[in-house]
Amino acid sequence: MAADGGVARQAELRRIEGNACFYKARFGAAIDCYTEAIALCPDVAVYWMNRGLCHFRRKDWAKVEEDSRKALALDDTLVKGHYMLGCALLRKEECALAIKELEKALDLLKSSNSRDKMAEDIWEVLAKAKYLDWEKHSTQRVWKIQNLKEACENALQEHHFLSGTLTEDSVGPTNEYSEQRKLLSEVFTNAILADTPGDVPDYLCCQITFEIFRDPVITPSGVTYERAILLEHLRKVGNFDPVTREPLKEHQLVPNLAIKEAVQAYLKEHSWAYRSN
C-alpha cells in the first residue's frame, strides 16, 4: 500500500509540473509530464484529460480523440472530455457523433446547475455541427425530393394515358391532369421550401445580438435578452435595461421558458437556423 501511495504521489507531482508548463504554453513539456503521470497511474482520468487538452491547444485532433476517449472510459461525467471529443469528431466531419458528445457536455453542465462560460464554447461548436449536419443532409434531401417529383409526374402522366384521359395525339393535357400536376408541383415545392434557409422570426432573436436565443431571460420591464449578452452589458456598461433604461440587477432576471421552448421547436424543424450562431 505504501508503494502504491508513493507512486500516486509521484504521479500527482508530475501532473502539477505539467500544469505549470501548460499555463506557460509549453505544451510539449506538459505532454511529457502528463505522459509520465499516466504511465504511473493509468486509471486516473484527469491525467488523460490534461494531456488531451494539450493536444487540443496544438490542434492535434487524432490525439485529442484518443485521450478524450480514454478519459471518458474512466469517467463519463467529464464535461471537457465530451466537449473535446465532440470537437475532434467534428473535424473528421462525423457531425452526428459530434452532436451527441456536445449535447452530452451541455446536459452535464445543466445537471450541475453550472453557469460556466464553457457552455458558450460548447454551444458555438454544437451550432456549427448541427448546421453542417443539416447542410450535408439537406443537399441529399433536395436531390431525393426532385427525383421523387419526376417519378410522380411520370406516374401521373402514365395513369391518364392508360385511362384514356390523355393521348399521344392530344394537343395539351386535360383539365383534370393539369390540375393534378399543378397540385403535385405545389406539394413538392412546399417540401423544398420547408428546408430552405430564411429569416428567423424576430421574437426568437435577442434584441442586442439579433441572433436566435440560446438561454433567454426576461427583465422586469418585459424585454427578453440572451443571458450571457445581458450579463456582459450589466458588468461592462451599467445596471440598467439596454432597451428601457430601467434599473436592473442580475438577480432580477428570470428564464423565459416559453421562448426557450419555442426556439427549441423552431430549431428542430429548421436546423439551418443554427447558421446565425
Rank of each mutant, 00 (worst) to 15 (best):
N239S: 15
G164Q: 03
I212K: 02
T165K: 13
E232R: 15
N277W: 15
F22E: 07
L102H: 07
F188S: 04
L267V: 06
A273Y: 05
K236L: 15
I31E: 01
V64K: 02
P242H: 09
Y83K: 13
G52S: 07
Q264L: 14
C41I: 04
A71Q: 07
I122E: 06
R69M: 13
P216S: 15
Y177G: 02
E93D: 12
V171D: 06
N113T: 02
D121A: 14
K149E: 12
A73Y: 03
T219S: 14
T189F: 09
M84R: 15
W123E: 10
S170D: 15
K92C: 01
R51Q: 09
I192C: 09
T224C: 14
A228L: 07
K236F: 11
R58K: 12
A98D: 06
M49Y: 01
E269G: 02
D121P: 01
V79G: 07
A25K: 15
R51D: 01
E66K: 05
F240S: 13
C206M: 04
G222R: 13
E153P: 02
G28S: 07
L108G: 03
Q146C: 00
E94G: 00
E158K: 15
Q264Y: 08
L126M: 13
I259R: 08
K268A: 13
A98E: 03
E176D: 14
L74Y: 03
I145M: 06
A8C: 02
W143A: 07
A73W: 02
E179G: 02
L126P: 06
V200R: 01
H55A: 00
A129K: 04
L53N: 09
A105H: 08
L183R: 14
I31Q: 02
E150R: 12
I38C: 06
E65Q: 12
Q180L: 15
M49L: 15
S185L: 05
A151G: 00
L53F: 05
S138D: 01
T189K: 14
T189C: 06
D4H: 05
K144N: 04
A30W: 05
W272F: 03
V79Y: 09
I122P: 03
E261C: 08
N239Q: 15
G164L: 03
Y131E: 03
A98Y: 04
D195N: 06
D215M: 11
V79E: 07
A262P: 06
W61A: 00
K136S: 12
I145A: 04
W123G: 00
L257M: 15
W61Y: 01
D75W: 04
T165A: 08
G222Y: 13
T35C: 07
L204Y: 03
L53Q: 06
A119N: 06
A30Y: 05
V171G: 00
L132V: 01
R115L: 13
I16A: 15
